[in-house]
Amino acid sequence: MDTDANGGDGGLEEFEVIPAVDVQDGEVVQLVQGERGTEKTYGDPVEAARRWIDAGAETLHLVDLDGAFEGERENADAIDAMIDAVDVPTQLGGGIRTAEGAVDLLERGVDRVILGTAAVEDPEIVAEISEAHPDSVVVSLDAKDGEVVVEGWTEGAGISPVEAAERYADLGAAAILFTNVDVEGQLEGVATEPVRELVEATDIPVIASGGVATLADVRALADAGATAVVVGSALYEGNFTLEAAQNAAESVE
């Protein structure tokens, strides 16, 4: 996402539905609750990115899943190919562990970097990157059983999402990406209360992710106050179209 997508208060002007392009071993995949071995593949990343743009996507959510697990960007070539192939803003996460690495990606053409483990281990990295590139850092708060988890959702960080969101807002984060791991990838619906709590706890935008299966889920997250939702499996499985999801969100008063 670039600054043109933001209103004067730093939030998105309107609710946005953002397709996810998660890459593992060079292919688009979706995992169930973030666990390796549960993946279902959906083909070439560039083809997927172009498909969502043709469908009307205004932003793409890119994730190097191998990077998230291993701590190094394992799918850099595939990510670079997508960045070169699309003309919409991108936000990228997975394996970004240093300020230098984040800045390199921003200068390479990524609009926003998503920091998870790096931000938990060294919160000041958010301020360092944001000072040089304002409005460029999205902090990923992935929660399992009410606790922030890191290292590819395998380790607890000992902090609640609300406590973490308050910390990163003060450090200059542009947005919070909240993924509810308890419902992620299961296509069984969303849990709105954790999203609502985050929205009420921080003044920066909250992007929701995890569990979206129906248009009602999209509407529920918009009603909970999220400024955007990242959708993966439901779009790839054809539960609904991107256009229908955006229309559903816009119907929320």
Score class of each variant (00 low, 15 high):
D2L: 09
A5Y: 03
G7Y: 06
G11R: 15
E13Y: 15
E14S: 08
E16I: 09
V17R: 15
V21N: 06
Q24D: 02
V28Q: 14
V28P: 07
V32W: 03
Q33V: 05
G37W: 14
E39R: 10
G43V: 05
V46M: 02
E47H: 04
R51T: 11
W52T: 01
E58R: 15
T59W: 13
L62C: 13
F69A: 13
R73H: 09
E74K: 14
D77L: 06
M82K: 15
M82F: 12
I83T: 09
D84Q: 13
A85L: 07
D87C: 01
T90I: 00
G95L: 11
I96H: 14
E100P: 00
G101V: 07
G109K: 14
L115K: 13
A118V: 07
D122T: 14
P123K: 09
E124G: 00
V126I: 10
P134Y: 12
V138I: 15
V139R: 03
D142G: 11
A143G: 06
K144F: 00
V148G: 02
V149H: 01
V150S: 08
E151V: 01
E151F: 07
G158Y: 05
S160G: 06
P161I: 01
A165P: 02
G172T: 12
F178L: 13
L187C: 10
L187F: 04
G189A: 10
R196D: 11
D203P: 00
P205R: 11
I207F: 10
G210N: 08
A213R: 09
V229K: 06
A234S: 07
A234L: 02
E237Q: 14
F240W: 14
N247M: 11
